[in-house]
Simulated scan of single mutants.
Amino acid sequence: MKLLTLAALLAGLTGAVGATPVGLWKTIDDETGQPRSHVRITERDGRLSGRIEKLLVPPATPDCVKCSDERKGQPIEGLTILRGVRRDGEANWGGGDILDPKSGKVYSVRLTELDDGRRLEVRGFIGVPLIGRTQVWERLEP
């Protein structure tokens, strides 16, 4: 019994240290506090990307009409909004960008895991992280 308890404790510690934001997240609008979408974050070659899997609030238009890059005119549902993010410390990720499909603007991004990976602080900014906006997403599944 003691061996089983020790194994479970060690597995929990290993999971916390090696945790990543990979999984399905419910985005929460920082202005309204309401859920907006489900975003699936995946990792490939040490870099994260995130794609909108499901919209919880129908947009005014289903396509990203305000986007100015290759995503212009693409359906918002299925759109990759998070790109090129890499580990930057034990619980932080950065160096990539995030798209706001509503405005079409692209921001630098920093991700910080909170509450043992159950929540994710998503900070979009221009220039320095002090100037920007923060959303806290909730994990739906690993």
Rank of each mutant, 00 (worst) to 15 (best):
G94P: 09
T80Q: 07
W137H: 02
P129E: 07
E138S: 09
P58N: 11
A91H: 14
L13Q: 06
V22P: 02
S37N: 00
K66D: 09
L99C: 03
S103Y: 06
V109R: 04
R51P: 00
A8R: 05
L9S: 08
D88Y: 07
E138M: 00
Y107K: 06
G18A: 13
S37R: 00
G94S: 15
D45S: 15
G50F: 02
R119E: 14
I126D: 08
K66P: 07
A60N: 14
G127K: 10
K72H: 15
T61R: 14
K54E: 11
K105R: 09
R118H: 15
P21R: 06
L6P: 00
I131W: 13
L82F: 12
R123S: 08
C64N: 06
D30Y: 12
I41W: 05
V17P: 02
T32C: 13
G15T: 12
I52S: 01
R36V: 03
E43G: 07
R87V: 07
G84Y: 07
L24D: 04
D100C: 03
T61Q: 14
C67Y: 11
G104W: 06
L120T: 10
P142L: 05
G127D: 11
T42L: 04
D88V: 10
I41S: 03
I126C: 04
I98G: 06
R123T: 12
V106S: 05
A16D: 07
T61I: 13
D100E: 04
G78A: 00
G73K: 08
L6W: 05
C67G: 15
P58K: 14
A91M: 12
I28L: 03
T32Q: 12
P35M: 02
H38L: 05
T27M: 00
G89R: 12
C67F: 12
A8P: 04
P101S: 00
G73Y: 11
G95V: 14
R83S: 12
Y107A: 05
T20M: 04
E77S: 01
R110T: 13
L140W: 00
V85Y: 13
G15P: 05
E53W: 01
E141W: 00
I81N: 01
C67D: 09
I131T: 11
L9I: 13
P21D: 08
S49D: 15
G95P: 09
S68Q: 13
V106N: 06
Q135M: 09
N92F: 10
R110M: 10
Q74H: 10
S49P: 03
P62K: 06
R118W: 12
R36M: 05
R40A: 05
I76C: 06
T32S: 15
T80W: 01
I76Q: 02
